[in-house]
Simulated scan of single mutants.
Amino acid sequence: MANVPDIYFLPEWGKYFETQEEQGKWTMFEFKNDLGHINYQFIARPVPVDTGAITYYDIITPYGFSGPIVLECQEGKRQELVAEYDSAFQQYCEENNIVTEYVRFNPWIQNVKNFEHLYSFRNNGDMIYIDLTVEDFFMDEFSPKSRTQVRKAQKNNVEIELDFTGETVGEFHRLYDITAKRNGINNDYYLFSEEFFQKSFEIFKGKQFLLNAKYEGEYISSSLILHYGDYMHSHLTANDPDYFHLAANSLIQYEACRWGIENNKKEFQLGGTAPYENLHRFKKGFTKTKALDLVIGKKIRLQKTYDQLVDRKMENGGIKVMGYFPLYRG
């Protein structure tokens, strides 16, 4: 797709993660008129409440950070364009029985600014990134402790390997499994098969690579790096804790930055950290740049239906998490 600013807005991204949502169906809603052009990709999921003959849906943005985005707009007409888009999308929701929206907005593109009057919001923590446009990222962004860790890994003869074809996916998956178990991750949404990772190298050819760290021939740390336009992302990272003392992950961050600068990237996104305090401290060691807000947008499109669904869920088993959105999934 032309002129999207980041990989998370590509249609192939949304389609690829469609299966992460139970019974999910990917859709791209495209709004175009004389004022401009807005795209919004999402995954529609059947509402998990028995409603009889009618099937209702709620929608969620695909894994990652996207949401509706203004691709083109006449100067001074942005507010008018968004209003007309919202009217058209409301009609679409009514015609397709879409009850609610859950939007993970993109923190670095900050597309939320164009739609902030349409949603209620929740701040979901910080999004940490390294500014690659500084004169010397190692001295200007990395903390003294992180610089020491990088030098330690180099002194310990940790080797770095870049894999652009997916040949080492098996090693990455092995390390990812170790990391998931160590962190107590048992939600299928965050667990991926080796085949799922392998397929990504076909779909996102030229837009991702594995950055591996090896010690005495063993793979000890690995990061799946995405890149598109001005941005690169530490999408998923995996480590063997038996080798933490070698500081391989710090060396991976350093080498990723070097690659980004050589390939004209402006920012290296390290991702969110909630609710892990140690992870936040680790990532903050690589940047002095102020973190971005990770914003979640929520909207009820069919209020009457929403209320009925909540009532029905309360009658049939109840709602365990009262602060959840949408509440009938709580």
Rank of each mutant, 00 (worst) to 15 (best):
Y40T: 06
Y40A: 10
Q41E: 13
Q41G: 06
F42V: 00
F42K: 03
I43P: 01
A44E: 15
A44W: 11
R45P: 00
P46S: 05
P46H: 05
P46Q: 04
P46T: 01
V47R: 08
P48L: 12
P48M: 11
P48G: 08
V49K: 08
V49W: 10
V49D: 06
D50H: 13
D50R: 14
D50Y: 14
T51P: 10
T51D: 14
A53G: 09
A53Y: 13
I54H: 10
T55A: 15
Y56T: 02
Y56P: 00
Y56S: 03
Y57A: 08
D58T: 00
I59S: 05
I59E: 08
I60G: 03
I60Y: 08
T61L: 02
T61I: 02
T61S: 05
Y63H: 00
Y63P: 00
Y63L: 00
G64Y: 04
F65C: 05
F65S: 02
F65G: 03
F65E: 02
S66A: 09
S66V: 04
S66F: 05
S66P: 03
G67W: 06
G67V: 05
G67F: 07
P68A: 00
P68M: 01
P68L: 03
I69D: 03
I69M: 03
I69P: 02
I69C: 02
V70D: 00
V70F: 01
V70A: 03
L71T: 02
E72D: 15
C73E: 14
Q74D: 07
Q74T: 08
E75P: 04
G76S: 12
G76N: 07
K77F: 13
R78Y: 12
R78A: 14
Q79A: 15
Q79R: 15
E80I: 03
L81N: 04
L81Y: 08
V82M: 04
A83W: 09
A83Q: 12
E84N: 12
E84Q: 15
E84S: 09
Y85C: 05
Y85K: 05
Y85R: 03
Y85E: 06
Y85I: 01
D86Q: 09
D86H: 12
D86P: 00
D86K: 05
D86A: 05
S87W: 14
S87D: 13
F89H: 05
F89Y: 11
Q90L: 12
Q91F: 07
Y92Q: 10
C93G: 07
C93H: 11
C93F: 11
E94S: 15
E94C: 12
E95T: 13
E95G: 09
E95N: 14
N96Y: 09
